[in-house]
Computed example of a mutant assay.
Amino acid sequence: MLTDKEKMFLDYWAKNRDRQKKLLYQLGVGLPLGLVLGAVIMANFFSGWYKRADMIANSQFNPVVLYIAVLLIAVFFAVFSKKFQWDQQEQRYKELLHKQKINQDKQNEEKQDHEVHEKN
């Protein structure tokens, strides 16, 4: 038997699974967290905690490359994390559907057995 929470999840995911699978939705929801990760990378780079790397970077560094790399990392992180979450939710949804089907099959068998016993 499914719990109320599982039934609520089945209803929610049946309505929202297609919307959450779209790339634009995944970018819109996941990009803020990806940009936070990018900001941490930029802060680490500009903090200058490693003096030798800082001297080399200042002499041979093109900041556009860093900005593009951070943006690509943020987008990748956003899409990858949301796709991973979607896959987890989809797996849970399929498992609950299977559990629900098994429960319904058992109930149908019990009902048929009960009807057979009543006839005899």
Rank of each mutant, 00 (worst) to 15 (best):
M1V: 09
M1G: 11
D4P: 01
K5W: 08
K5C: 08
E6I: 00
K7R: 14
K7E: 15
M8A: 13
L10K: 03
D11K: 12
D11Y: 10
A14G: 11
K15E: 13
N16A: 10
N16G: 04
Q20V: 11
Q20S: 11
L23A: 12
L24V: 13
Q26W: 09
L27H: 02
L27R: 02
G28T: 08
V29W: 00
L31R: 00
G34W: 00
G34T: 02
G34H: 01
L35A: 01
V36R: 03
L37V: 12
S47W: 14
S47K: 08
G48R: 07
W49E: 08
W49H: 07
A53K: 11
D54C: 08
M55C: 02
N58S: 10
S59R: 15
Q60N: 12
F61C: 05
P63T: 03
V64C: 09
V64S: 07
V65S: 00
V65K: 01
L66M: 11
L66R: 00
L66K: 00
L66D: 02
Y67N: 04
Y67C: 07
Y67W: 14
I68C: 14
I68S: 12
V70R: 03
L71Q: 03
L72N: 07
A74P: 06
V75I: 12
F76C: 06
F76P: 00
F77G: 01
K82F: 04
K82E: 09
F84D: 15
W86E: 04
W86V: 05
D87T: 09
D87P: 06
Q88L: 04
Q88Y: 11
Q88N: 15
Q88T: 12
Q89G: 03
E90Q: 12
E90I: 00
R92D: 01
K94Q: 15
K94D: 13
K94L: 09
L96F: 05
L96V: 02
L97V: 10
L97E: 15
H98L: 04
H98M: 05
K99G: 05
K99W: 02
K99P: 02
K101D: 15
N103V: 11
D105M: 11
Q107C: 04
E109A: 08
K111I: 10
K111P: 05
K111C: 10
K111G: 06
Q112N: 09
E115R: 09
H117I: 06
H117Q: 14
